[in-house]
Design a protein around this nucleic acid. Structure first.
Lengths: 239, 239
DNA sequence: AGGGACACGTGAACC
DNA sequence: TGGTTCACGTGTCCC
């Protein structure tokens, strides 16, 4: 199966010329060592010319194939940062990681763009943790619009004393998504003593209470049946 | 340079036993065909055992290296869709495309998240073109907040009669970014006769007029100097 | 010296 | 049958 004979005679001749009998061959099944003999100029018959040509085109094709593969590898090397001195396997491993990571972040991002139409959604997550202890968080709540929603949210956000760095309102049909980005910094550049997880869970709980208020008032939960089209700009209901 | 002798004698012995003199060797420099001779059991000296061991460990190491590389290739094959029957080069080419595309979309997305702090920014672009002629567009305007900004924008959006599917307000410090996603559909499911590019350029022009209005009233352009902190929720200035 | 990494030419298999 | 792909063992360089 794994038995074959191959070789380019040029090197062999060089070795032979130097009197260096390095050209040994291993029979891996029997563990025997064998010295490849010098060239035998024996005629092989009328097919010799064709065999030469076939062998030559074969090795050339194989060289082209290797060049093709290595060219793609080089391209990948330039695409992945700091992979200049990696060997082939390490480069491919790095590419695997990059692809996984990029795919994950891409799906994560598109998911953060998404406004679920049939289920309410609360997301509270850490989006960056810095070495100095400062963290950046994102909290979002997506639900059906109702008249008191924004004032309720404002009240909740204010009561939590979050260090807001960005807030966002999106609308899609009659649904609204509010997103807040905040840090654990407090005035003066100090880091909030509260542990991140505690902060996040209190935000989660506060958002839940906003959603619960909707459920508690059925007149709001039937709101979508009206299929009212709202938008920050084609309706003044939000403002 | 490219001259070498290699081979596993097992195969050679099989061929020899079958009387098939296929084991030919090509000297690619001279174009000569040579038949590899049968095994020569000549003693090579006291180093024969070591040479056997070296050759064996070498080929085994090489096999492990190949396995490592191919394992990563298999992983990549599972990571990129519909690459089951691609050969190595095509797979790598596809991976190159995927990585480029993912990196581009990732940077594109993070750029769309970005709120420029020192320059006003208008972006109008197509985000999807469907086979049925319907298109999905995104238009965004990012600038310093000023009291009339939202009503100006609302007026502009209304006058364009866009089929809005999503609108978004983000704030970062005293800067505001408004984003609108709209389609070329009109009531009844028909596609707007207007060509997409005309639609987009009129949106771009309308947004520019909103920005121009800021420049025309210097009291607004000095607004940032106050470093006023606004947010949808820690200030009522937006609503 | 000895092990890793790479390019090479070959045999086998497939179409 | 030519053409192409892959795995293999080897030669060679480098540390």
């Amino acid at each position: 199966m794994n038995c074959q004979i191959s070789g380019n005679l040029g090197e062999f001749c060089e070795n032979e010329a130097k009197g260096v009998p390095q050209s040994l061959v291993l029979d891996s099944e029997k563990g025997e060592l064998v010295k490849a003999s010098g060239r035998v100029e024996k005629k092989v018959g009328k097919s010799e010319g064709k065999t030469i040509a076939a062998l030559k085109s074969h090795s050339e094709a194989e060289r082209r194939r290797r060049q093709r593969i290595n060219a793609h590898l080089t391209t990948l090397r330039n695409l992945v940062p700091s992979s200049n001195k990696m060997d082939k396997a390490a480069l491919l491993a790095e590419v695997v990681c990059q692809v996984k990571q990029l795919k994950e972040s891409a799906s994560h991002v598109s998911e953060s763009f998404f406004i679920p139409l049939d289920s309410d959604d609360i997301r509270v997550e850490t989006i960056a943790e810095n070495a100095d202890g400062t963290c950046c968080y994102r909290a979002s709540i997506c639900c059906e619009y109702r008249p008191d929603l924004l004032s309720d949210l404002r009240q909740v956000i204010n009561s939590l004393h979050l260090n807001l760095v960005k807030s966002e309102i999106s609308t899609l049909g009659s649904r609204v998504k509010n997103e807040f980005v905040f840090t654990n910094m407090i005035e003066g550049g100090h880091v909030n003593i509260e542990h991140g997880e505690i902060l996040l869970s209190s935000v989660r709980q506060a958002f839940s209470s906003v959603l619960d208020k909707v459920s508690a008032f059925p007149e709001y939960s039937t709101y979508p049946n009206k299929r009212q089209r709202i938008s920050c700009f084609d309706s003044s209901s939000l403002f």
